[in-house]
Computed example of a mutant assay.
Amino acid sequence: MSWQTFLIACSIVAIIEGIGPMLFPRRWQNYMQQMSSQAPGQLQQIGGVLVITGAVSLFFLI
């Protein structure tokens, strides 16, 4: 994998992550407040599920 591919992937992630706050700022604020009130262990589980889902998806797409 080249640096250019890595930077393209990071750029796509930034675009996708920015869509929510750009289009729905109030909903995004509410979402962030709800997330910040979660227990750290629960956030860790959510993050783990997202990482595993992304890794498995990437494995099947490549």
Rank of each mutant, 00 (worst) to 15 (best):
I52N: 05
E17D: 04
R27D: 07
I15P: 00
V51S: 06
L7K: 12
T53I: 12
Y31S: 08
L58M: 11
C10G: 06
I8K: 06
L61N: 14
G47M: 11
Q33G: 12
L50F: 13
V49I: 15
M35T: 09
R26A: 06
S37L: 08
L23P: 07
S57L: 15
G54V: 01
Q33C: 07
V49N: 12
W28V: 05
P21W: 00
A14M: 05
Q45S: 13
I16A: 03
S57Y: 12
S37D: 14
I12H: 04
P40N: 10
Q38S: 14
A39P: 15
R26P: 00
V51E: 08
I8M: 02
F60G: 04
F60Y: 14
G18A: 00
P21Y: 03
G41T: 00
G41C: 03
I62Q: 07
Q4E: 08
Q34N: 14
I52H: 05
L23H: 03
M35Y: 12
Q45M: 15
V13E: 02
Q29N: 12
G20V: 00
Q33L: 10
E17P: 02
E17C: 02
I19R: 00
L50Q: 10
V49K: 10
T5L: 03
M32I: 12
F59G: 07
T53E: 10
I46T: 09
N30T: 10
G48L: 10
V13Q: 00
I62S: 07
A55I: 11
V51M: 13
Q29H: 05
I52T: 05
